[in-house]
Design a protein around this nucleic acid. Structure first.
Length: 606
DNA sequence: CTTAGGG
DNA sequence: CCCTAAG
């Protein structure tokens, strides 16, 4: 568009518009502010993840329905390895070591003998078709600079999601809980998202933590130590285990033990007092409702999860009597999603969009829905046996799905498609998500109104959205990927990315998602500044980014600042998408020119 | 609401 | 990007 325009600065060749009206003092208007540790969220990390739990064991008696989720990160590696070792699954160990344990989900129902063996970590890979395709790259926004300074080697702070479509195939029920020692091979470790900008120089960061927001996990992890400390679990934790005992007709709603952690300002979080954090605290801890899981309620949040695991084991020992039903949850269904994104949007934006859509939808108090042969089981008090989920029936189609809280009450069956977006908070979701409508014609995935399967790949492949139809039809669908997106970046496109705001809670103001400037945008900015000069950011905004709602004049100003900085440093030190040197030169030229002008008019205002 | 700067 | 003092 206007790339050809070259401007010559220096001398008097530059004929810029009138000098900024209100030329301001060049001197710092700086701000010395004492940062109030307010409750605002500085960084948010939305992690949509499912299947992030380890085996849970239920106890034989009474409310044995203990669902426990183990945070892969809090879970001691030794702990995990032991288990893995027991399973003889090297892969699992691998998993653990890579901090990917969260992919493992399993549920066991104590067998009548209360055999100890039942307490196992079932690797979903143990089952055919369960290859970690479901692993999702979660996009998360990181607190940048602030946290950057505190890099510490930590484990993943982001969770890989595992949103998949129906999981019939993946959800198996087996009688014996000790038969899955199979080890699946996977490229789990290949978590790094290799962007078009391979990390080259050693000094650089591995990935671009910009556009895709997908960064090598270790990279991210090491970003901040705080983030991975127990109180600040930045991941979603879902507990999804199913346990029941025929004797226990009481409460099997343990499946509701899904906890979602909302993004919040770390800083704030730590300053929170117990009282103020009560709410989010529990969420962050990923603990379960004590009401539902009485087993773990007595411990503090920080350790509850781990405890549950061990306890479960003990409980089992105490002798449960019932046939164990072992479940391997490969994936969860997610509510229908519509994505509407311009053709010009980038893949990265698509990923973000999908991710955000997912987190938006799932972010509100999740629930686990259970489908048996397509029918939603609503009676939480029924036992597995009563429901028909017995160890003998290995063919019963059992499926789990994630759903917004409210929907759990809606009578609609899963068959007729889970349009979870309905009431209450969902409304806003709908609104927010409206921007995520699939471009018709692209892939009529959304038309189906069926569940969407979002399949993330280990390597950070594009998230996939496929119609459930496919999913149902094909068990191997995990391999087929229906990409939904469309690229081309209309600055506007990203602007509408829906983002869930914690309604009514200003304390949860989210940090805006990071949206690196594209070269095109830089070009536009440079041109505008060349024309208008620095100091007229609002005009620049109107001139070049009027339709880019996500770019505020402050953003432009900031970008210019960084551009100038970028232009001054060696190319090797630059990060992110490379900006053509030509542009950087123009930046310097314009910057020099306008700085001079500014000085001029300051000393001697015409 | 804008700017300008530090964080 | 955020936060804010100054205009």
């Amino acid at each position: 568009m206007m790339l050809q325009k070259k401007v010559n600065y220096g001398f008097n060749g530059y004929k810029g518009p009138a000098i900024p009206k209100a030329s301001r003092s060049i001197r710092g208007r700086g701000t010395i502010k004492k940062k109030p540790e307010n409750n605002q969220i500085q960084a948010f990390e939305i992690l949509a993840n499912v299947a992030g739990n380890f085996l849970q064991e239920s106890e034989n008696s009474g409310l044995d329905n203990v669902a426990s989720a183990k945070d892969p990160h809090t879970f001691s590696s030794a702990d995990m390895k032991d288990k893995l070792e027991d399973e003889g699954g090297s892969f699992k160990k691998d998993l653990c070591e890579h901090g990917n344990c969260s992919e493992i989900v399993s549920a066991c129902v104590p067998n009548r003998q209360g055999k100890h063996e039942n307490l196992r970590v079932v690797d979903n890979a143990s089952f055919p078709g369960n290859h970690l395709e479901g692993q999702g790259q979660n996009i998360l926004e990181r607190e940048d600079e602030r946290v950057k300074r505190r890099r510490v080697n930590e484990k993943n702070t982001h969770i890989k999601g595992c949103f998949e479509g129906l999981m019939e195939p993946s959800c198996k029920v087996s009688k014996d809980c000790s038969s899955e020692n199979n080890v699946a091979k996977s490229s789990l470790e290949g978590h790094r998202h290799l962007d078009s900008f391979p990390s080259t120089s050693s000094g650089r960061k591995l990935g671009r933590d910009d556009d895709e927001n997908l960064v090598n996990s270790t990279q991210l992890n090491s970003r901040d130590k705080i983030s991975s400390t127990p109180p600040d679990m930045q991941k979603l934790k879902y507990a999804s285990s199913l346990m029941s005992d025929e004797n226990n007709s009481r409460d099997n709603s343990e499946l509701e033990n899904l906890q979602r952690m909302y993004p919040f300002k770390k800083r704030k979080f730590f300053n929170q007092t117990s009282s103020s954090t009560s709410d989010r605290g529990s969420q962050c801890q990923g603990t379960f409702d004590s009401s539902d899981t009485t087993r773990v309620n007595d411990t503090n949040h920080g350790t509850a999860i781990e405890e549950s695991s061990s306890r479960v084991g003990q409980q089992v020992h105490s002798g449960s009597k019932g046939c164990n039903v072992k479940l391997s949850i490969k994936s969860f269904k997610v509510p229908e999603l519509f994505i509407n994104i311009p053709e010009t949007a980038t893949i990265g934006s698509l990923k973000r969009t999908v991710m955000e859509a997912v987190t938006t939808i799932l972010g509100n108090e999740l629930h686990v829905g259970i489908l048996l042969q397509g029918k939603k089981i609503r009676d939480d008090s029924k036992t597995l046996i009563q429901t028909g989920i017995s160890q003998d029936d290995k063919r019963h189609r059992l499926a789990f799905m994630l759903e917004p809280r409210h929907t759990s009450n809606s009578p609609s069956s899963c068959n007729d498609n889970p349009c979870f977006l309905t009431t209450g908070s969902q409304q806003k979701l709908s609104k927010q998500s409206t921007s995520l409508m699939l471009q018709q014609g692209t892939y009529n995935v959304s038309q189906e109104r069926s569940m969407i399967k979002i399949e993330s790949c280990v390597e950070g492949d594009l998230n996939v959205v496929s119609s459930p139809t496919d999913t149902y039809a094909n068990n191997n669908m995990s391999k087929c990927r229906t990409l939904v997106a469309v690229p081309a970046i209309n600055m506007e496109a990203l602007a509408v990315v829906p983002f869930r705001r914690k309604s009514g809670n200003p304390d949860f103001a989210q940090r805006r998602i990071r949206r690196p400037f594209s070269v095109l945008e830089v070009e536009a900015l440079v041109q505008a500044v060349e024309k208008l000069g620095t100091g007229r950011w609002r005009d620049v905004k109107q001139r070049a980014f009027d339709h880019a709602k996500h770019r505020t004049y402050v953003d432009l100003k900031d970008k210019w600042k960084t551009l100038v900085h970028t232009a001054r440093i060696s190319p090797q030190q630059r990060r992110g998408e490379p900006v053509p040197q030509e542009l950087l030169d123009r930046v310097l030229a314009a910057h020099a020119y306008w700085s001079q002008q500014q000085c001029k008019h300051q000393l001697k205002p015409l």
